[in-house]
Structure formats: C-alpha cells, structure tokens
C-alpha cells in the first residue's frame, strides 16, 4: 500500500468517525451533543466566540489567500 493510500485512508477513517459521532448524537437516547450544538454552546461565551471567529478568519485566509 502506497504512503498516499495510507494517508487518504486515514482521512477517510477520521471523516467516518466524525460522521458516526454526529449520527450518534442525533439519536434521542444519546448523551452526546452534535458538533453544531457544541459549537453553539462554545460561541455562547465571549471568549469562545472570539476564538471561533479567529479560527474562522484564519481558515478563510489559508484557503482563499495563502
């Protein structure tokens, strides 16, 4: 198996884990909250909101400028 395949497989596994957690979180009996609701809870705090906005700004700059 080539290094590229291994790396891509790793990304696929991580994506599958995230999707599985999100699905699990949406079950009525789940004690886990989804990523969106957790982000919402973090953004409810001023420091959390500033941190998320800084991360968002960095992401945009990284993807569309540099």
């Amino acid at each position: 198996m080539s290094p590229r395949t291994v790396t891509l497989l790793g990304w696929a596994v991580l994506a599958a884990v995230a999707i599985a957690l999100e699905v699990l979180a949406h079950r009525s009996t789940s004690r886990l909250v989804g990523a969106g609701r957790l982000l919402s809870q973090v953004a409810d705090r001023p420091a959390g909101k500033v941190a998320l906005l800084l991360g968002w700004a960095w992401l945009g700059w990284h993807l569309f400028v540099r």
Partner: peptide, 26 residues
C-alpha cells in the same frame, strides 16, 4: 447562557486532536 456539555467537549476535542495529529504527520 446554555451550559457547556463537558462529555461532548472531551469527545469532539479528541476527534479534533486526531485530525491535527494526522495533518501534522502528513
């Protein structure tokens, strides 16, 4: 404001940590 769910924060932070680790290794 709404309470922060500690258990979920730990679980999702672990996922983010794995993504960061894999990104750095790449």
């Amino acid at each position: 404001r709404t309470a922060l769910d500690g258990r979920s924060l730990v679980v999702w932070s672990a996922v983010v940590a794995l993504v960061v680790a894999w990104e750095l290794s790449a």
